[in-house]
Amino acid sequence: MNKPLILVVEDDPPVRNLITTTLKAHGYRYITAHNGNDALLEASTHNPDILLLDLGLYDIDGMEVIGKVRSWSEMPIIVISARSEDRDKIDALDAGADDYLTKPFSVEELLARIRVSQRRLNSSGNQSSGTVFVNGELKIDYAAGCAYIRGEELHLTPIEYKLLCLLSKNIGKVLTHTYITQKIWGSTWEKDVASLRVFMATLRKKLERAEGSTQFIQTHIGIGYRMIKVE
């Protein structure tokens, strides 16, 4: 498998060094940008596979970069933020980012996020038009409206099935509460967010019933959910 090209946008040199050293150590190809305008230039000329974007840039706002990149490319964007408020992350995700990392992050965490985006790249390449979705032991037959785990049919309520489809179609991407409730219920009441938590919990229980089974759905507290691509 070809190692992807990663564009690192970070204005702080030590953190940029940390990221590039890590990437080099793990055999990734990378290019760097120090500010938003450079980032847009690099992104358009080199067309990288993954974008690592620091939100706190000094020239243009990171959110603007996301918006511009999204206007021509679906490349996975991982946002790096030093702000502790959830709101920033949610806004970035709703603007089109796939994932987020909060400073301080560990090197392992960074690599894990990159791997998740990489898998999304690969899966979108070979599954884009299929009516059957396969993720490890999970199989969803969109045409038949059925989901199977280890070949066994799952008994899901209509809402659970809708949730599962929504997550699988956006595999690897963190979906915010607002996005999900909007898609499922068409509204974003607080009540819906609470119900969403319960539905997610029951859905996860059904998916991950067996002891030591793989985790399919990640919870991001205060932000949303994501389906992980299982190797």
């Binding site: 607080e190 967010v193 609470a194 938590r197 919870t219 507290i221």
Partner: peptide, 12 residues
Amino acid sequence: KTAELMSDVIDE
């Protein structure tokens, strides 16, 4: 304050 699942919170 929002309604949160205790299991999610403890995992986090």
